[in-house]
């Protein structure tokens, strides 16, 4: 059995910052979109606080995303951009084999010390969704700062193009897509951890994965 250091500190920290931000953004965002509780009294500032924390966590989330994207270019080989966009035939094969394994059409998960090809490519699209969520978020935020050049640049430009309703619609839909991702992501992490016995779940805490000697059937 081999133990290998896979996830560096910035990868793990941004992962958990993302978890906390997405959770906080979803709870506050759902309230802003459709308030599910009434303020206790006229001084409660419930919506005010929800919006405050939504914006705070939005900036924390953006900072985390910037660090993680930077790490695409300077991190170890498991953190690099080529783990996210499959360019080599080997990564594509890994992606397809992984998908076939999940679909019960292949017996074994291909050996992937870092992300599987499927996971990496999924995270790439996830990050695109994050970016779209951030841009639509700034677009909606720009309404409080009508005419502000920076808000117009960051997202406000799309309001007259798509209409406010559609921008809000997209902002909601992406949250639900991220929720779907989280369910599948957590399931597959536990699933692979059980099947591969590679301490996959622990690896996002301590950075280390174990690799069993692979049995040949």
């Amino acid at each position: 059995m081999a133990r290998e250091y896979i996830w560096e500190v910035p990868v793990r920290v941004t992962h958990w910052v993302n978890v906390i931000s997405i959770l906080a953004l979803s709870i506050t965002g759902l309230y802003i979109g459709d308030p599910y509780a009434q303020g206790a009294d006229e001084h409660s500032m419930l919506m005010g606080k929800m919006r405050f924390f939504h914006f705070i966590f939005a900036y924390i989330f953006i900072a985390s995303l910037i660090v993680r994207v930077y790490w695409w270019f300077v991190g170890n080989k498991y953190a690099r951009l080529d783990q996210f966009i499959p360019l080599s035939g080997e990564r594509w094969k890994n992606l397809i084999d992984t998908a076939l394994f999940y679909g019960f059409m292949k017996k074994d998960l291909p050996h992937s010390p870092g992300h599987t090809g499927l996971a990496g490519f999924t995270y790439f699209f996830l990050i695109l969704l994050f970016v779209l969520e951030i841009i639509t978020g700034f677009a909606l935020y720009s309404q409080s700062h009508e005419g502000g050049a920076i808000w117009t640049l960051l997202g406000g430009w799309m309001l007259p193009v798509l209409g406010v309703g559609m921008v809000r619609f997209i902002h909601h839909v992406i949250m639900w897509l991220i929720a779907v991702f989280v369910i599948i992501h957590v399931y597959i992490s536990v699933h692979n951890n059980i099947i591969e016995k590679n301490s996959l779940v622990m690896s996002i805490f301590n950075g280390y994965k174990n690799f069993q000697d692979r049995q040949h059937h």
Binding site: G33, D34, L162, G163, V164, G165, M166, R168, F169, H172
Partner: peptide, 11 residues
């Protein structure tokens, strides 16, 4: 057309 239904926020 662009702001959603009159009586709801979300289109």
């Amino acid at each position: 057309d662009a702001l959603g239904p009159i009586y709801s926020r979300l289109p």
